[in-house]
């Protein structure tokens, strides 16, 4: 022991550095964890790929554009599986969700970090974050019991009767209100806390000097936010929106309860539809045949590919935004 303590620590040999001091061991353990995570993503890819073999063999790339989903043979239609209704429903509901939630979420973030009195900042932040803690099945329940009746009476029918006469996507019939737009609205609520919390956090790290410069130039509060704070943090805000989009794409439970679970393409977005996640969740347990099951796994593979692609696109966008700051217009 005495010799160990006399040896200069920094000059210890590789063995000492790696094992006696434990650095190497620690590094190896955390590296293992990281490999596990990467391996998990890989494993999900492999399982969905292998599980969808039968459906892939039968439908190939035509699966993505196929508009019919008939698990049961009838006198008028053969068994066939096409993903387009589900893919379209997933993309449309998520798009609506982001379109609704992004401006509101950014607004909340701005209020929390720039304008709100110090005394209510903490409680308000907490409430917004609490929104993220509500289980999605409760959102779904609330959607069915509260949002749908309100939505049909106050929004959907009046809109369909007015704007709907010009825009086919907003046309009648509204029916029960279950459909793409109602689902998009519920999803918007669910991703709101993500967008607002991230916006608040990225605004909070904007250096104060950036605000002060604008103030010193004679800017109003609005001009400070618009001219200095938002440009400085736009990469982070876009990142927050993309995170919200990711959640909307994969959200299952609320979609199952609201979207109507109908694998059909209707002109009107008020009509029942389906999303990839809700279709898989609602059909997998009572799949009628191995091909049906395989088709659902193929649909899962498709959803996986969509989220991966959008995430990658988001990364590239964020990287370009942070690099291309010189092109700021204001």
């Amino acid at each position: 022991m005495a010799t160990t303590s006399e040896r200069p620590v920094a000059l210890g040999n590789a063995w000492t550095r790696w094992f006696r001091h434990g650095d190497g061991l620690f590094a190896a353990i955390v590296a293992l964890f990281s490999v596990l995570v990467v391996g998990l993503v890989f494993a999900v890819g492999v399982v969905t790929y292998l599980g969808s073999a039968e459906a892939r063999a039968q439908f190939g790339a035509g699966f993505f554009t196929g508009i019919d989903w008939n698990p049961i043979e009838t006198s008028i239609q053969a068994v066939t599986f096409g993903a387009w209704p589900a893919v379209r429903g997933t993309l449309l509901t998520s798009l609506i969700a982001v379109t609704l939630a992004a401006p509101v979420g950014i607004g909340i973030g701005i209020y929390l970090s720039e304008l709100c009195p110090r005394s209510i900042r903490q409680p308000l932040s907490f409430m917004v974050e609490l929104l993220a803690a509500i289980p999605s099945v409760i959102y779904g329940l609330w959607g069915v019991l509260v949002l749908l009746p309100f939505f049909t009476d106050v929004l959907a029918n009046p809109i369909a009767d007015s704007l709907g006469t010009i825009i086919p996507a907003l046309a009648q019939p509204v029916g029960t209100g279950r459909g793409i737009i109602a689902t998009g609205m519920i999803l918007a609520l669910m991703i709101l806390p993500t967008i607002s919390a991230i916006t608040r956090d990225v605004l909070a790290v904007v250096p104060n000097t950036q605000r002060e410069v604008m103030l010193a130039l004679g800017a109003t509060r609005w001009e400070v936010i618009w001219g200095a704070v938002l440009p400085y943090s736009r990469a982070g805000i876009v990142g927050g929106i993309m995170l919200g989009l990711g959640r909307a794409l994969g959200e299952t439970m609320a979609a199952v309860m609201i979207v109507g679970n109908t694998a059909r393409i209707s002109d009107s977005w008020f009509q029942p539809a389906t999303t990839a996640a809700s279709q898989i969740a609602s059909e997998l347990t009572n799949a009628t045949s191995p091909l049906h099951e395989s088709a659902l796994i193929y649909l899962a593979l498709t959803l996986f590919a969509i989220t991966l692609t959008l995430n990658l696109a988001a990364r590239i966008l964020v990287a370009q935004l942070s690099r291309g700051a010189a092109s700021s217009r204001f």
Partner: peptide, 13 residues
């Protein structure tokens, strides 16, 4: 007008 302790240009051209 004001000039600050640390140079603080905006991240624009």
């Amino acid at each position: 007008g004001m000039v600050f302790q640390r140079p603080n240009p905006f991240a624009s051209s």
